[in-house]
């Protein structure tokens, strides 16, 4: 299968180093402490953050830091075949864990001992790269909730098909069976907090793909910062400052 034409265009018309269109919106769930909608092309996810609040289950309470919990779900209508999937299947549990660990690494949990932060992410529409979209949405929602963080985590995926590194795989590219690297970074600190890869790559290729994913994460970070800044300006305006 030809995923990159000799003219250098991917099936959807992007070039190998291009991301899909991204769009973010803050404060989409009024009840939550913080929330955000994040779109990468046709992948659309929503994240809502509750807390910091009292720990519900006392036995889980941590005396030196906050408890971060995450629940990842996919809406039944998010894929083409509207199938009813059991809640808490293996894939969801794994992704919940990945998101929780990634977010935990940037939340300054030691500032909020004996409290609990809940992150809910739901995929509304899936077209590849859901993990990255979830992390970006969660990051924005946490920022919206005003939870202290070391840096904004941003995530992006990159893959390797037809001997070409490709940024931000969509569903067709993702299902091609090539390598798929999902990366999460702390852009200001220049640290990697998440790195997942299925399939194998030679070291040199991997470095190229990884570099591309880092570029992608940075681009997401720039965009997220713009959105936050714009949001803050709006708030200031509304408060009449």
């Amino acid at each position: 299968m030809e995923y990159v034409s000799p003219e250098g265009l991917r099936l959807d018309g992007r070039r190998p180093m291009e991301m899909r269109q991204i769009r973010a919106e803050i404060g989409v769930v009024a009840k939550a402490a913080g929330s955000a909608l994040f779109e990468m092309g046709n992948t659309k996810v929503i994240a809502a953050v509750y807390g910091p609040r009292e720990v519900q289950n006392r036995s889980q309470q941590l005396n030196d830091s906050a408890l971060v919990r995450c629940e990842y779900t996919m809406a039944n209508f998010s894929t083409g075949d509207r199938m009813r999937k059991p809640k808490g299947d293996r894939r969801s549990t794994e992704i919940s864990l990945v998101i929780r660990q990634t977010m935990e690494a940037c939340i300054m949990t030691h500032l909020m001992p004996r409290s609990q932060i809940d992150i809910f992410v739901q995929v509304l529409q899936a077209d590849g790269g859901t993990r990255s979209a979830c992390i970006n949405a969660a990051s924005l929602a946490l920022a919206d909730a005003g939870i202290p963080m070391r840096d904004l985590v941003t995530s992006c995926s990159a893959g390797y098909l037809n001997s070409t590194p490709l940024l931000d795989l969509n569903y067709i590219e993702d299902s091609a069976g090539g390598a798929d690297v999902t990366l999460g970074i702390l852009p200001k600190l220049d640290k990697v907090t998440l790195l997942q890869m299925d399939a194998k790559l030679s070291v040199e290729t991997f470095e190229n793909v990884m570099q591309l994913a880092i570029e992608g994460c940075k681009a997401v970070a720039t965009y997220i910062r713009e959105v936050l800044l714009e949001n803050t300006k709006q708030l200031e305006y509304r408060r009449g400052i």
Partner: peptide, 25 residues
Amino acid sequence: LQNKSFVKRTRGGKITKVVREHYLR
């Protein structure tokens, strides 16, 4: 950006609507 949508029969015989992004440059 242009979304292309079309219906497709899946291997199981179900008819699904497929939406694909189509970028114009």
